[in-house]
Design a protein around this nucleic acid. Structure first.
Lengths: 210, 210
DNA sequence: ACCGTACACTGCACAATGCAGTAAAGTCAA
DNA sequence: TTGACTTTACTGCATTGTGCAGTGTACGGT
């Protein structure tokens, strides 16, 4: 029952490879640091370490912290060997879910205002994460990295996030300008502007300045 | 049993709003056109229209196509009203799963070659999708859009994809250059290069030229 | 002494995936 | 024309993952 190693299992195992964690810490840490690469629910992050113990990849003991109990998980040698197996396996293709884009694609069902609101909501969600990463980088400069010897990896990772967020924000701006030219969301089809845009894309050229 | 409208339900309903589809067509169409905004399994795409029928948002009938049977689904007026409900609801935040980034973050467990292979695999996956979108745009120029009056929406959507793919490809190139400077994947910490990079990111500046 | 928040989980219903299985029609080559 | 392979057209089932409600303890402030 539920003993297959998934990417989420390896993600938790990789965290355990850094140091022992309690179940609760694992949920917090995974949601903070892995959210942008591998977003998983708190519920799952409580279940994964248990599975790792069952597989022999982690050991656990119950600890009293001031009267309250908590489970501490530690990686085993077998767990470290399991991580090597992961390293050798083929990386899964990215999977990107953006409801806002779905709404853009079907924007002709609603009004231009609805579409505009969708873009606002997307911008809100992105800028929140964007700001969080910028703040995190500032904290690294103040020596705030929890594993200082791993800073080079975290920063390379953060570079990806920042580039993504900036690209999305540029597109939102572009989309707003584009939509401002539309008399409505419906039945426009291949306008001269859209045709010019399509031609750029077909030649793999970016329509965004910058 | 299973009668809540999810975003996936609305995605299928929005397709039905364009024209009636058979179950099979729906799975093909959704995987082709929605893959980049809302990637869903074939299995789910067979189940969703059934749910829509149960909810009264779609009607269905069995059609013989040359001896073979197939289910045809059509949106109802109630279904169109349900789409309005979706339009009014808050857009969900994007969700981005990139296993390759997880591997970057934990690259100190493996070798520089492992990391380099991960980047290659990511590049392969991205360039495949990238090329598919570019080809699609070329086909639009030849009048190949299945709903010509909706071209303006598809192209705005495609602009997002192209920008994302280009941003990811730029980052991969940047990451390769960065990693080439590393004597190993482990224990580097805050090198002068990484510090300069962190400083840029903390000021929300892009470290990538272009 | 009370209240809100952080800690520290578990159970359960349901959403979604992957894979195997079923079967008929079309396509191409030996 | 027969056999092999692909495409069309799904369904069942086991398992993975999510969301939410529920349980209880400890701590800091008023």
């Amino acid at each position: 029952m539920a003993l297959r190693m998934t990417t989420s299992s390896y993600a938790v195992l990789a965290l355990l490879d850094l140091r022992p964690w309690t179940g609760y810490e694992l949920t917090q840490q995974a949601q903070r640091s892995l959210r942008y690469a591998w977003p998983k629910s708190e519920r799952l992050l409580y279940s994964e370490p248990k599975k790792l113990v069952e597989l022999g990849y982690a050991s656990t003991y119950r600890e009293k912290s001031g009267g309250r109990n908590r489970n501490v998980y530690e990686i085993t040698d077998e767990g470290r060997r399991a991580l090597d197996v992961w390293t050798q396996s083929r990386t899964q293709a990215p999977r990107i879910e953006i409801e806002a884009l779905l709404r853009v694609l079907f924007a002709d069902h609603g009004s231009a205002d609805d579409l505009s609101r969708t873009l606002d909501e997307l911008e809100t969600d992105i800028s929140e994460h964007h700001q969080a990463i910028v703040d995190l980088m500032a904290s690294y400069l103040d020596g705030g990295h929890p594993f200082p010897q791993r800073t080079h990896l975290s920063v390379l990772f953060a570079t990806f996030q920042i580039e993504m967020f900036k690209a999305m924000e540029r597109w939102i701006e572009f989309a707003r300008e584009e939509i401002a030219e539309w008399p409505s969301t419906r039945e426009l089809g291949m306008t001269p502007r859209t045709e010019a845009l399509t031609r750029l894309l077909a030649n793999d050229r970016s329509p965004l300045n910058q």
